[in-house]
Simulated scan of single mutants.
Amino acid sequence: MTIRVVVADDQELVRSGFAMILGAQPDIEVLAEAGDGAQAVEAVRALRPDVALLDVRMPVLDGIEACRAVTGPDGCRAIMLTTFDSDEYVYEALHAGASGFLLKDVRRDDLVHAVRVVAAGDSLVAPSVARRLIAEYTSRPPVDRQVRRAELLDALTARERETLLHLARGLSNAEIAAALVVSEHTVKTHVGNVLSKLGLRDRVQAVICAYETGLVSPFPD
Rank of each mutant, 00 (worst) to 15 (best):
Q25D: 12
F84M: 15
A135K: 10
V106S: 06
Q146L: 13
R203W: 01
I134A: 12
S123A: 12
T138I: 10
N193P: 10
A114Y: 05
D9W: 05
L167I: 13
E184H: 11
R68A: 12
V182E: 09
L165R: 15
P59W: 13
A52L: 02
A168D: 04
T83W: 00
H113C: 03
I64S: 04
L53W: 03
L94H: 04
R140H: 15
D110E: 15
L156N: 00
R57F: 04
A24Y: 01
R132T: 10
A96H: 02
A120V: 04
H190Q: 15
H166Y: 13
P142T: 10
T83H: 03
R45E: 13
A210V: 04
R145S: 12
V90N: 01
I3E: 09
G100W: 01
S99A: 14
G75C: 11
L171N: 10
K104Q: 06
S217C: 14
A19S: 12
C209W: 02
T157N: 09
L195H: 03
A168Y: 01
D122M: 10
L153H: 06
L153K: 12
P218K: 12
D36Y: 10
I21R: 10
L156M: 11
Y91W: 11
D105T: 07
A40T: 01
R57S: 07
P141M: 12
A66C: 13
S128Y: 03
R169K: 14
V112D: 04
N193H: 11
V30N: 03
R45K: 15
R45D: 11
A178P: 00
H166S: 09
R57Q: 14
G63Y: 01
R161W: 01
E65F: 05
D87P: 06
V7R: 00
V56P: 05
V187T: 01
T82P: 05
G37A: 11
H95N: 14
S196V: 07
D221V: 08
R48W: 02
L152S: 10
A135Q: 05
S196I: 01
A93N: 00
R45I: 08
D62C: 05
E92L: 13
T83L: 09
